[in-house]
């Protein structure tokens, strides 16, 4: 039985059909890149996985159980914008995820528990390259830094799956490349199941172990909303690339740095 099972899922808003008859199985630890034209339901699909929307018809199972119908800590999310809380410092943005589940009444921890949460958050922030900015507010960070923070915030919950909705869409190409490297490293360390919506086909090919293309196969020119999109291509991407990456990562640092400068 696969980790995520999508069973004949339809989604429509009014008489606008967005997704039709979606059938999909995703194994644990896969990195799925969701691509397709805008308005073809990739983000809708992601929102259904997140629990923000319910399928009109059909069912999504997580580990054989129906998906919880509202967002919860089992699913982490990074949006393109508004992913981090503007009123908390970088450190508190991440520590919040440790405080909230343990303090259902006050929403905050005190004393030793608080210090431990902050310590744990600081370690993760160090890992994503934000160790120097713990006390800053998100508005003082660049776009790339904010997304690093959003990823750290999602990872501190140790979610079962990580959902990314065009997380790097607003970033410069150079920064985007750094983020790809970071995301791949984190994915290899945690073996998380990742689903990522992207507009950028090459991004999907670089990162994914599986590429899902959403597209409309049926068109009715008199009723543009009559048919929805489905998954037209389901491409397993060569895993040897990731094997290579792992092998390179295992090389001693002075060798890899020499390779990079070459």
């Amino acid at each position: 039985m696969s980790f995520i099972q999508v069973r004949k899922v339809w989604q429509q808003y009014g008489d606008q059909t967005v997704l039709e008859n979606l059938r999909l199985d995703i194994a644990e630890g896969e990195f799925c890149a969701l691509v397709g034209a805008s308005g073809c339901g990739k983000s809708t699909f992601l929102r259904m996985l997140l629990g923000q929307e319910r399928p009109h018809k059909g069912q999504i199972l997580l580990d054989g159980q129906p998906l919880v119908a509202e967002p919860d800590p089992s699913r982490g999310i990074v949006f393109q914008r508004y992913s981090v809380l503007p009123h908390l410092s970088v450190l508190d943005n991440v520590a919040l995820g440790l405080e909230l589940p343990r303090a259902p009444l006050l929403g905050r921890l005190f004393g030793r528990a608080k210090a431990e949460a902050r310590e744990q958050a600081a370690q993760l922030l160090q890992r994503v390259g934000l160790g120097h900015a713990l006390d800053k507010y998100p508005s003082q960070l660049s776009g790339g830094m904010q997304q690093r923070l959003a990823i750290a915030q999602a990872l501190i919950m140790k979610p079962r799956m990580l959902l990314l909705d065009e997380p790097f869409g607003a970033l410069d190409p150079g920064i985007r490349k750094d983020m790809h490297a970071l995301l791949l490293e984190l994915w290899q360390e945690t073996r998380l199941t990742v689903l990522m919506v992207t507009h950028d086909l090459s991004e999907g090919f670089t990162l994914g172990t599986r590429l899902l293309v959403f597209d409309k196969v049926r068109h009715d020119p008199h009723a543009p909303g009559a048919y929805g999109a489905r998954i037209t291509y389901d491409i397993p991407l060569n895993l040897d690339r990731h094997a290579t990456r792992e092998a390179v990562a295992a090389l001693p640092a002075h060798v890899t740095s020499a390779l990079k400068t070459a």
Binding site: P71, I77, R81, L96, L100, P101
Partner: peptide, 11 residues
């Protein structure tokens, strides 16, 4: 997005 994010953080 912020309200959803907070829910995924266990609020």
């Amino acid at each position: 997005e912020l309200l959803i994010k907070a829910q995924t953080l266990g609020a």
